[in-house]
Amino acid sequence: MKRAFPWHIAVFLAPAFLIYTAFSALPLLDTLRLGFFTTHDSGHQTFVGLANYIKLLTDPDWSAGFWNAMNNNIKFFLIVMFVQNPIALLLAALLSMHGVRGAKGYQTLIFLPTLLSVVIIGFIWQLILSPLWGVSEKLMGFVGLADYFQPWLGDESSALITLSLISVWQFVGVPMMLIYASLIAIPDEIIEAARIEGASSWHIFWTIRLPLILPTLGLVTILTFVGNFNAFDLIYAVKGAIAGPNYSTDLLGTFFYRTFFGYQSQIGSPTMGAAVATTMFLIILSGVGVYFYFIQRKLQRFAF
């Protein structure tokens, strides 16, 4: 009995394994393979070893673009991380308090933008921030700030920040929900016990609730990291694949897109693009690795 082929395991695993392998793993492996090849004018490909990677990291034309995209991506991630997640934590904490009237309603509405397409969000915000339509300027005028209005999306120094804030606006609902769920999962007895001992809500939050939800905050961090280093749609929808002004909104995703598919008269190179894709993969992998080996392990100790 024990040695019989475990059919049930195969049945449980096979469908997921097959679809995942055929439509995700093999295509991605093929991309990794392509990274070691180069495309000739006639379209056929030959093996070149690490040449694409060396070019990407040492040829100034490529490396400048790559590091620019990399830096922008780090900025994008940091802004989202340190604006979105604290807001999410604040909202979740307020929502999880006892007896907040309309909490469900707030939750529902704040989560709403998450459901809308990035294409639509990008377009809506472009309209709102448009200097010609003047909605933002008028709104700022109500509080006497009209003079401070700038074409934020068009300015090299503010375009990336503006886009990351749009991203925050859209996706804050996701971490909010995750944190909220873990906050209300904390057993009432723990909180009650502290309250009986006379601890204030504020104190309870910092010393009891926050430590208990650290694993969730870790999960939120890593999801933000992976999500942001894959980001593409918003930049593409608002600024196009050339990510202006002066590539100040170029992220790894748009950089990959231009390399892989080309843009206008730039001819796309599937092989060079594959090298960029592989590099992105390694960056994400190392980020996730760091998370799992150092942070998650520590967090586990606090888990309940």
Binding site: A25, F256, V288
Partner: peptide, 13 residues
């Protein structure tokens, strides 16, 4: 692994 790699990178295949 699929969590980390955007599937978009394998589009052509």
């Amino acid at each position: 692994f699929g969590i980390m790699v955007p599937i978009r990178l394998g589009t052509v295949s």
